[in-house]
Design a binder for these strands. Sequence first.
DNA 1: TGGTCTCTCAGCCTTTTGGCTGATGCTGCT
DNA 2: AGCAGCATCAGCCAAAAGGCTGAGAGACCA
Lengths: 208, 208
Amino acid sequence: MTTISVLLVDDHLVVRSGLKALLGTQPDFDVVAEAASGEEALELVEQHSPAVVVMDLAMGAGMDGIEAIRALRQRNGRQAILVFTTYDSDADIVRAVDAGAMGYLLKDASPDEIFAAIRGAVQGKSVMSAPVASRLFQQLRNPDEVLTPREAELLSLLTEGLSNRELGQRLFISEATVKTHLAHIYAKLGVETRAAAIATAIRREGMR
Amino acid sequence: MTTISVLLVDDHLVVRSGLKALLGTQPDFDVVAEAASGEEALELVEQHSPAVVVMDLAMGAGMDGIEAIRALRQRNGRQAILVFTTYDSDADIVRAVDAGAMGYLLKDASPDEIFAAIRGAVQGKSVMSAPVASRLFQQLRNPDEVLTPREAELLSLLTEGLSNRELGQRLFISEATVKTHLAHIYAKLGVETRAAAIATAIRREGMR
DNA sequence: TGGTCTCTCAGCCTTTTGGCTGATGCTGCT
DNA sequence: AGCAGCATCAGCCAAAAGGCTGAGAGACCA
């Protein structure tokens, strides 16, 4: 039997131990290293070149999971990257898949789901939790409601409470353009005010 | 040596396993049961009457952690309850302590912190993570920044994206009064716009 | 009884936001 | 070559939000 080498990336030690304990029950998994940050993950991948990287998206400080995935992909590693996170926000799912994640699991997934996802990942199969899949499906059905990259960027800044003027300065665009983007964002989110947009963004899109 | 019986309550299996693995490294801890929900926690406390209950606040569906703590306290159990959660929102901290939690740990706490907190809890000592303690301290030092009940109510509705007019209608007050409350809220939160207030409320005050 | 807090309301004025229409340059796809 | 989508910008106007001052009623406490 071929063993599958795994790198765990999560800023919470408890989660890493839990995952390690779970994977330890299976004969074909071998957790070769653990990282608590994106930066550390890059190093450890270099050192151990694991077959699979299981990665959280929300990482306290520094590089977040998405950036780490992107960085790993750019160094053309052959690792299969599996997202393992608490939230299933639309934006995160799309960005993670876009960045090159092979699968997307939620932290309340059952052990079997986790095992299957990892085994599938090394074989090039894409596995995701049911809620995640249904969200992706939803987006495919309603492409009109998908934010463009620029809009998502703006929405993200919006949730920090910036004014149109400030948004323009941050993004190096005029206030007029900010307003245009906002109008599109409101339409796509189905809201009419910036307040509602922020509320929706933080709750539904998971932008915190 | 007296062993300390522990009940773990967290809706994520990985977290429970991780915690169990960590506590297993110490000779004086004995994880007697695990619950995935508040309801289950109540049952298992009844069955095992553990010395300490380590509880997450965010629990998928049904009874949340705060309610579970309150319910346990009302059944006048002698368990020390320790909150073990991801976020340190002001509101959650206050509500948890108010509900009867002995300590408040964040999930990125080190094993030693966790061990110390559990051992302290059975001896009646209150242990909390540094960020948590500083937030509580902050509130005691600046009572001027504590929202009045009415203000908190308004802020909560604000996070749903309502306009001043709608807020007035919901609360049966004039728009002028809404504006007065908002001005006070902004001052207390240290923001200048409703957008920033919403962002702060959801992130810092934990109003989701 | 007086002071303080909280909640309530009004008016005035400035700034910000949102709705609308129209327009340009770029990219990618057909 | 042409079309669609994206990002950019402008101007105009109405609505909403925010800053400021002042003020009254009720609760609570010293």
